Amino acid sequence: AFINSLTEAQQKVAIASSTKSNESMKAGAFSDNATQAYEGLRGDRLTTAQKRKLLAIVEVFVSRAKADVARARMAEISRHLADTYVTWAGGIADDAAFYVRVHSPVVWVEVDCQGPGPLAGAYGATQGGDPTQLHVHSIIRTPNGNDYGKELLRQHYLTSPHHT
């Protein structure tokens, strides 16, 4: 609904690729404290209706928290909507495999349709390793939020000359 709410000009900015590779996720496993350049269409370029659709993507993840926590988090994310970027890869048809990243100073959400993997037959996702909506990875993170627990003391010892 979000990508199809964009004008053709907006889609040209938001869609990084009209094809979807097997795995596009940038913030998944083994990417502790990852940094990613902002890419795509800025939130301040969206209409009010488009902003609601973009926030609805994030709300799917945020709403899993207790209601008061989710409301506070969504308020924080909404305050940064002008500084939020959305990028897309893949098709825009309802059944097309796609990748979407919503990225701001306070939230990083990714939804990534991936190749079916080794258990594909058990889940009916047997398209020869091509990305499918039947095998989706998703994540919500806090950019630069130390959400994987960076070893700050170890980093200090390795980078401070007075410990050599």
Rank of each mutant, 00 (worst) to 15 (best):
F2E: 01
F2Y: 10
F2V: 09
I3R: 00
N4M: 03
N4E: 10
S5V: 08
S5W: 07
L6N: 03
L6W: 11
A9P: 04
A9Q: 14
Q11S: 10
Q11Y: 08
K12L: 05
V13S: 01
V13C: 00
A14D: 01
A14K: 01
I15H: 01
A16F: 11
A16L: 14
A16K: 12
S18Y: 15
T19Q: 13
T19Y: 10
K20Y: 06
K20H: 03
S21E: 11
E23N: 09
E23D: 06
E23K: 10
M25C: 11
M25K: 00
A27I: 15
A29F: 12
F30Y: 11
N33C: 05
T35G: 03
Y38F: 14
E39V: 09
G40L: 08
G40C: 07
G40P: 10
L41I: 12
R42F: 04
R42H: 02
R42K: 14
G43H: 05
R45K: 15
L46E: 04
L46H: 07
T47Q: 06
A49G: 03
K51W: 04
K51G: 09
R52C: 00
K53N: 11
K53E: 15
L54V: 14
I57C: 03
V58S: 06
V58Y: 04
E59T: 13
V60A: 06
V60Y: 13
F61M: 12
K66E: 15
D68F: 10
D68M: 09
D68I: 14
V69K: 12
A72W: 04
A72I: 10
R73Q: 10
R73D: 06
R73H: 05
M74I: 11
I77P: 04
S78C: 02
L81S: 03
L81N: 01
A82T: 11
Y85R: 00
W88N: 00
W88F: 12
A89I: 04
A89E: 11
A89S: 13
G91N: 04
G91E: 07
G91M: 08
D94Q: 12
D95V: 08
A96E: 09
F98W: 03
Y99W: 07
R101I: 06
V102M: 02
H103G: 00
P105D: 03
V106S: 05
V107S: 03
E110R: 00
V111Y: 13
D112Q: 02
D112G: 02
Q114F: 03
G115I: 08
P116E: 07
P118V: 13
P118Q: 07
P118W: 05
L119C: 01
A122W: 05
Q127T: 15
G128H: 09
G129M: 08
D130I: 07
D130F: 12
P131R: 04
T132N: 04
T132M: 06
Q133R: 15
H135V: 07
V136E: 03
V136F: 07
H137P: 06
I139G: 02
R141M: 11
R141A: 14
P143H: 05
N144H: 14
N144Y: 13
G145T: 06
N146P: 09
D147W: 02
Y148T: 13
G149I: 09
E151R: 15
L152I: 15
L153H: 08
R154M: 10
H156L: 15
T159G: 13
T159I: 08
S160E: 13
P161C: 04
H162Y: 13
H163R: 12
T164N: 10
